[in-house]
């Protein structure tokens, strides 16, 4: 029989609590209980990265992260990036400008991986960026324009573009 547990955590800056099935993944909790539908399900076993969210500053596949492990954590999904007046984050604008979006299903996970990467404030080569982004799969773009979007945002943040 299902067992339930109360999970209190901060999601996109807001303190929340909900009862979850102890077997539920964080993906399930975010999608079903909080309707944060940017968290996409592509494989549910940590292969594709479509469900990536940031937990206490680190990017995770939320599909292989139990919801109950989120207790006391700060969780950030793509929905958190939009400013109060609807302002886009630089990385979101870059995905639009570089035509890095096609079907859009991998886009939220890619942007969250990129957010964590960009927050290191380091300058990576294109080859290094490829390695850091390799946990996310995309079938539409060949990754080319995603790389351009992340690289340009990185260089802009570092004042080099």
């Amino acid at each position: 029989m299902a067992q339930y547990k109360l999970v209190k955590c901060t999601i996109n800056g807001k303190e929340t609590e909900t009862m979850v099935d102890v077997r539920a993944s964080l993906t399930d909790m975010l999608r079903n209980d909080y309707r944060l539908t940017s968290v996409k399900k592509g494989c549910e076993v940590g292969e594709c990265g479509a469900c990536n969210v940031i937990i206490d500053g680190e990017c995770f596949n939320s599909c292989i992260y139990l919801a109950i492990w989120a207790e006391g954590k700060k969780i950030q999904t793509l929905e958190s990036l939009l400013g109060p007046g609807g302002e886009l984050a630089d990385i979101q604008q870059a995905f639009i400008d570089e035509a890095a979006v096609q079907c859009g299903f991998c886009t939220p996970g890619f942007i969250m991986t990129a957010v964590q990467l960009l927050e290191t404030r380091k300058e990576y080569t294109r080859e290094e960026l490829r390695k850091h982004l390799a946990g996310n799969l995309c079938r539409c773009t060949g990754y080319e324009n995603i790389l351009n979007a992340v690289e340009k945002t990185m260089l802009r943040r570092l004042g080099k573009l």
Binding site: L36, S38, E79, L81, L88, G104
Partner: peptide
């Protein structure tokens, strides 16, 4: 730019 890009980069596009 794509007409659907905005909704897709902010997670508003519904699948």
């Amino acid at each position: 730019p794509r007409v659907d890009a905005l909704d897709k980069v902010i997670g508003r596009a519904k699948y």
